[in-house]
Design a binder for these strands. Structure first.
Lengths: 225, 225
DNA sequence: CTCGACAAAATTGTCAACAAACAGCGTTCG
DNA sequence: CGAACGCTGTTTGTTGACAATTTTGTCGAG
């Protein structure tokens, strides 16, 4: 367990990345206090460097800082996760439409291959592999769109909601629902059909929102049988 | 000249606000270098405080920082301003729809009064007053929507594009174009008509995008008669 | 006169130490 | 017996100085 935290170079940029990784990977759980001195020891960096990293991560929405009270891992509620998904619905549909307009032939091949891999992953029951392909697809669409402002916002939001996304991906039957939605997005983009791509992205994110609500309800009932 | 920069308390939060104000107010022009030691003297704060402020403003998109090369005021190109407006088109329409669903009777009165004030400002030729009301309206809609995630993103983007927005507001005839668009948004929200509100917001931002392109073309031709 | 290397200045990145603020806990007074 | 008060330990906020890096200015060779 100590291996993951001991191998560092004291660079400043890397400390930000290291703490961010620790948060999104779940090594630091929500609401966990982040004491500057402790992190300083863990990552072999000075307290000032850690402090700068915490400020940066605060603006990314991953940590919460209150005056004279320190920093802690920000816990995003279900309500916030839904808000984030609503924003994603708007921006991913924008990116999908732009991507459909600008996609090159090489990128069409790339996307179709991604679609094949996703189908195989779902068929083979490889949930975690499918989850990774999922992220790759969304990121590639953002990149192809050329809308760097939207892409930046989406990347930031992804960090905040990664925990909910992962929980969702783990629910049985979820991949079977999201796979056709993803394939629809791919098809529309590859067909250079902007309006259909936007609609497919909207539908997908709408499905995510519904699944978030359903998953929460299911877990609540699981805790109170 | 020294008067505007000398009155400060060395608080950390206030330094961020002070520098941000200096940037959005145009006191610091785009691409101007922001030397930590200089700012430290100007705002009567330690260099570490200034440094923290610059990191925060970097994540807000107002300043640009490169390794060992310092910080400078970020210059947002026309292309970026259009990208930002596209994102705003998506998110403000979302907020307008949500606001239409949640608006209270008191808020309806508030919005209608804002509309009246805007009409008066345009009728009286008070361009800068109208610009202020414009901002108030957009902010109020965001607040009423209850979509804090979208509101946060929009607030951040506003800071980045304030320069372009202001230049736009100054163009002759622009208020006469945007006023009815704003009134349409107000009407739709006050009528609790979500779909119409979203469409009105989309139309307004689309108009902004067109005006940005037109204004740029006009200025280029002005420089090369 | 231009180009390249070298040296000096300026600026950022890093660190350790000091001061202020807060939280928990025991004591004391009503 | 309960609550307010003050104390102590911990954590953050701030400061100043040092080291590393980049930029600028100068000099000499081609």
């Amino acid at each position: 367990m100590t291996e993951s935290a001991a191998d560092e170079q004291p660079g400043e940029r890397s400390v930000v990345a290291a703490i961010r990784d620790a948060i999104v990977r779940g090594e630091f759980v929500p609401n966990q206090r982040l004491v500057e001195a402790d992190l300083s020891g863990q990552f072999a960096a000075s307290r000032a460097t850690v402090r700068a990293a915490l400020i940066e991560l605060t603006n990314e929405g991953l940590v919460e800082r209150v005056q004279n009270r320190g920093a802690r891992v920000r816990a995003v509620s279900l309500e916030e996760a839904i808000e984030i998904s609503e924003v994603r619905m708007m921006l991913e549909s924008l990116c999908a439409a732009k991507a459909a307009e600008r996609v090159s032939d090489a990128e069409v091949g790339e996307l179709k291959e991604l679609g094949e891999l996703m189908q195989q992953a779902v068929a083979g029951g490889d949930v975690v592999g499918y989850s990774g392909l999922n992220q790759r697809l969304h990121r590639r669409v953002r990149e192809i769109s050329g809308q760097r402002t939207a892409a930046q916002v989406l990347e930031r939001l992804r960090g905040q909601s990664v925990r909910h996304q992962f929980r969702l991906a783990m629910r049985p039957g979820r991949p079977q629902v999201s796979l056709p939605e993803h394939l629809a997005i791919i098809d529309a983009i590859c067909a250079h059909h902007a309006e259909r791509a936007a609609e497919a992205a909207r539908a997908h994110l709408g499905s995510v929102i519904e699944a978030l609500k359903a998953a929460d309800a299911a877990e609540v009932s699981h805790l109170r049988p």
